[in-house]
Design a protein around this nucleic acid. Sequence first.
DNA 1: TCGTCGCTAGACCGATCGGTATAATAAGCC
DNA 2: GGCTTATTATACCGATCGGTCTAGCGACGA
Lengths: 194, 194
Amino acid sequence: MGETATRRHGRASRRAFVEATGALLRRQGYAATGLSEIVAASGAPRGSLYFHFPGGKRELAVAAMEQTGEQLRAAIAALMAGPGGPAASLGVLIDALAAGLESSGYRDGCPIATVTLETASSVEPLRETAARVFGTWLEELERALREDGLDADAAARRALFVLSAIEGALILARARRDTAPLAAVRAELLAALA
Amino acid sequence: MGETATRRHGRASRRAFVEATGALLRRQGYAATGLSEIVAASGAPRGSLYFHFPGGKRELAVAAMEQTGEQLRAAIAALMAGPGGPAASLGVLIDALAAGLESSGYRDGCPIATVTLETASSVEPLRETAARVFGTWLEELERALREDGLDADAAARRALFVLSAIEGALILARARRDTAPLAAVRAELLAALA
DNA sequence: TCGTCGCTAGACCGATCGGTATAATAAGCC
DNA sequence: GGCTTATTATACCGATCGGTCTAGCGACGA
């Protein structure tokens, strides 16, 4: 019973698939990412793919989106709990995103945004997953804004505004290969929140 | 000399390819759009594709992005020239985008954003085209903001902020299938610009 | 020791991918 | 009428796509 060696090995393969998929979704999105590419990047055996993910590519993408979504949600929560109120925390968040973009040579963006734009009109489960993940991020932002004194409606509206600005800046930054859009959003957002 | 009947027909085929590609890029992006799909949607003969676009899919995508980019640039310019200053004009622009999204059942988004996220790290010509098109939009916004009294730096920063917020809201709106993100951006943006 | 179960090997499937080749058609010019 | 040029028809290419199949491995409980 419990974790046998075989089982541990299996879970490791599963995890490798999910992580490889997440990384590829960040760089090139859903449609451009082939199963062979995922298998190669993961190092796990191809024969195992449909054992762990009978739903195929779709199920794999959902798992990857949920994983990176949860990581980012936790990061947001941790940052917003820091000192200085929401404005200061958002500044740190945007700086971190800019640093991540730059250090990957503008290759790694937000996987949720990419998959949304590609599949919102054709692959329902992926669109639903994207909406759910965005929802968890919005909740964290809302909570911080409410704790800062905003009422529920205002907090919800402002959270949408903040996330929109950040996601949009990530697009512009990748297109131009510079962080100016993030810097602009950072500056204007902090001014608007004051 | 000049426009012969054959030539006119050829140009029509070319235009049909570009328009079909543009529509498909809006819905599903670059990688998910096949050449056969483009040919079928355009109604033009497949044999003509590589006559008009020797560069293949890439060249076709560049042409489509430039065309829809120019259309949107002109629309932005016309709106910003309207009465009431930049804030009022942006309100109208965002309303128009929301109406467009809704009327297509949240299928048609911004083709430039989608292609950017998919190809920024792998297909240079498309990334460059996206950056160029975004640049033309930013120029229009900047000009309107300068005419409203902002200095060059502030106008550039604010234009980046505005475009980021709008592009991000389009993503969230498509994921959630509602226009709340656009409404939130509209409200907060107008307040920030006042 | 033997059957069972979790997992993997890897060959294989039809379909579609982006792209190319060659010949025909259609119109304009002389 | 012949000659050129623009455009289209269609068959075809190898590669890759997402997905499936069956045989078997290795560790476990009884």
